[in-house]
Amino acid sequence: MNQNELRQEFGRKAEAVSAVVTPVADLAQAFAQAARLTALQGGKCLAAPGWEGADLAALKAACEQEGLELITQGLRERTGEFHTGLTRARWGVAETGTIVVESSSEELRLATMLSEVHVAVLPAANLRADLFSLEQELDRTLADAPGYLAFISGPSRTGDIELVLTLGAHGPRQLHIMLLEEGS
C-alpha cells in the first residue's frame, strides 16, 4: 500500500468503528480543532498531559481562544471536570483503523480514559498497513519496561444488553483522530 492508499484504508476502517478522522495541516490546526469541538460540546476543560514547550504554548493559546481551561497534570483530582483528553498517537494501523498510544504516563492514561472525548494527534507518516508491519517497533516498546501500551480502535462500546451497540460504556464517547500531514 502506498501512503495514499494507507490513508484511505485507515480512514475507512477508523470510521467503520465510529472514530472521526480529520486531516490537519499542522499541530496548531489540530489544537484549534480540539479546542473548538470541546467548546461546541459544552466542555469547559481540556486535559492534555505530555505536551511541552512551543507545542504547549500553542495549545494554551487555542484553549484561551475558546475560553477553555487547560490542565496537564493532577488529573485524578479533576475527574469529571475535563471534557476532552488530548494526546499523541504513536502509530496508526490501516487494516483495523487502530491508533497505538504509548500510555506509560498515568496522566496520559487518565486523559484518554476519564474524558468524554478523546482527541489523538497522529502523524500521517506513522500509518502502517497492519500490526505485523509494526511488530519490531511494538516489541521494542514492550521491552522498555515498565510500560503501558494501548491499541485503540474507536470509542468505548458495549453490546451487553441485547447486543444493541452502544457507545461510551466506560471510556470516551467519541474518538477524534487528527491526521497530521506536517513532516510527512
Partner: peptide
C-alpha cells in the same frame, strides 16, 4: 489477535487492546 475478535464478534479488532509490563506509574 488477528482471529480472536473476528471470531468473537466479527470485529476486526476489539476497541481496546492493552499491554501492561511491570509496575507502571500510579500516583
Amino acid at each position: 489477535l488477528r482471529l480472536l475478535p473476528r471470531s468473537a464478534t466479527g470485529q476486526l479488532i476489539s476497541t481496546y487492546v492493552t499491554w501492561v509490563t511491570g509496575a507502571v506509574e500510579c500516583a
